[in-house]
Design a protein around this nucleic acid. Structure first.
Lengths: 341, 341
DNA sequence: CTGAAAGCGCTTACAG
DNA sequence: CTGAAAGCGCTTACAG
């Protein structure tokens, strides 16, 4: 007679049933909104539930129903305002649809991404939204094999079965170049992080647009930290003295570039015009407020949840890929190039 | 003979056991690091697990072991850099100790806080870290009644049983005032949000320090949005033309105040010195970089996890309250007051 | 409309 | 060292 006694601290549905003089089945029906329960009994159950402050155990319910109303959200850095904004919008949309959010921060580490994907598989989450650090990680295919819906966010994943929501980084860079060319600029530089997919696409858009305008390109790789942005900006300004316009291709790079411009007392937009990627709040606080390319982060987040929910409902639908446009937010950092001496 | 057939998609421990020619009990032992299993059998199990890509179901395991290695983190706004930083540090510390993080964003809504506390109770999380929107919400006491450990973060909770990690907001404001007085300022203004506990404490610290210095106070309530900060800054400058120093008591207020100072071409620190609460990265990007009071957010986060883990291990220990100091980060926004005309 | 019973996928005390 | 069996707390097909 094997028995494992576990000290039972919290109330169970049996306690409620006993107290109400009904079966656990009936209590469960009331709690799950089954309309076939007689009104007297429903009220009796609700009364006892309130009296005892009974809280159904979701773990048991999840196991029995074979479904966990939770999604995993994997980002590389929740402290980056871009992702903070995305996660907030995702949480909002998920909460409205009854899903909880398990937060997974990878810190740009492929190991931690692997770790978290394994955890999410173990937790049997309903789906995952991932901004991959390692788009080819083996776990991505494994989860998809297990039938876990996955939406790539902001960056793609190397598996066609995943849905994806992306910003049109190529198009965004083209808009930036065309806007500056429209102001008469011909010497336009780009500072970007080309090891990440979004940065690479921005480079491609810049190159295409410059080529179409018949202009020479000026590009410096700028890494992902503010410090890297500073160093890259210094190099670009040193190497291309003729420069009249600058496109820092991410918020950290912008932060570094802005400091360099101020230290060198470069007049913006008098001497150098700036169009920055990412519309952070602080671009309004600096002098002059920056013209930016804003990603439709909220819209991306709600789209991601929609794709996920649709796929949960219909696992075999063909995978979709939604690409959303940037918006140019004109402020005060662009003007005509300085008159030729 | 009642039977509920559920389509079983994923593998179970029984499949692994069958394939390995062993019992589920033995497979479970191997997976949980029980050392009493013979090496041959251990290897056999591991082999089959790898072959089938078997992933133990955490939901079942959680139910059976009556423990869920997950903590709920409740904040009012993950998009506020202050909380983004806190959540990141909490996730980091939690992950290292084997806990998952369920993210709960309340949007400063008491309803959503209630909602999430109920959800966390249902999920039977191991503990919760809460920066309360409604410090007296009934659910707080109810969770504590159920034995769910709770740590108040940044703001207190009206229940003595909860542990707490706080920043010394009173002391921080005193440091700001004393620093400015040390530079010779006598007309020092405060912009704060006094409806939240942290803001109120900052007000008290300011008032105490000003009184000790024998100075008159100049205070304007500034709300929580950037727009409110702007309006408050304008009022303060209009009403106190003699003002030579300003303490904006939160990051959003600082953002608004900085814009007003620039628009009015007030020289910082020539005409007005500034010491701002919250050390956001962008304070480095504006002109001049701001002297700030930095909250030890990382340390607060690791302390919160420690308090939680300690209490999980020892539920009846007396509750603790840890108060951490601010650090003054001197940059370029403070100087002596302008010479009297 | 309601209850008894089976079962979700694990873990573990007990027996051998 | 290993297995059979019980049980964590729910839900639901089935019988009445």
């Amino acid at each position: 007679m094997a028995t494992s006694r576990i000290p039972r601290s919290s109330l169970t549905i049996r306690d409620v049933a006993a107290r109400a003089g009904l079966s656990p089945a009936t209590v469960s029906r009331v709690l799950n909104g089954d309309m076939t329960v007689r009104d007297v009994n429903r009220e009796r159950v609700l009364e006892v539930v309130a009296q005892l402050d009974y809280r159904p155990n979701r773990v048991a319910s999840n196991l029995r129903r074979q479904k966990v109303e939770m999604i995993g959200v994997i980002v590389s850095d929740i402290e980056n305002p871009h992702f903070a904004q995305a996660v907030r919008a995702i949480e909002d949309a998920a909460h409205k649809r009854g899903y909880r959010v398990l937060l997974c921060n990878t810190d740009e580490s492929a190991d931690k991404q692997r770790d978290y994907l394994n955890i999410l598989a173990g937790e049997r989450v309903s789906g995952v939204i991932i901004s991959p650090t390692d788009p080819s990680g083996a776990q991505i295919g494994e989860l998809l094999d297990l039938g876990v819906p996955m939406v790539a966010f902001d960056r793609t994943v190397n598996d066609r079965r995943a849905d994806a929501v992306l910003a049109d980084n190529v198009g965004g860079a083209e808009v930036a170049v065309e806007y500056l060319v429209g102001h008469g600029h011909r010497s336009i530089g780009l500072l970007g992080a080309f090891s990440v997919e979004t940065g690479l696409n921005r480079l491609h858009g810049y190159e295409d647009a410059m080529r179409r305008a018949g202009l020479a390109t000026h590009v410096v790789e700028a890494g992902v930290r503010v410090e890297d942005g500073r160093a890259a900006a210094e190099r670009l300004l040193d190497e291309v003295p003729s420069l009249t316009a600058l496109i820092p291709a991410s918020n950290f790079i912008t932060a570094g570039a802005v400091q360099v411009l101020r230290e060198r007392r470069v007049k913006v937009p008098g001497e150098v015009s700036v169009v920055a990627f990412d519309d952070q709040v602080w671009v309004n606080f600096i002098d002059p407020p920056l013209t930016t390319l804003a990603q439709p982060v909220r819209q991306m987040a709600t789209t991601a949840i929609e794709l996920l929910v649709d796929r949960i409902a219909e696992p075999d639908r063909p995978s979709r890929r939604v690409v959303l446009d940037f918006h140019l937010r004109v402020r005060e950092s662009c003007g005509p190039p300085p008159a030729q001496p």
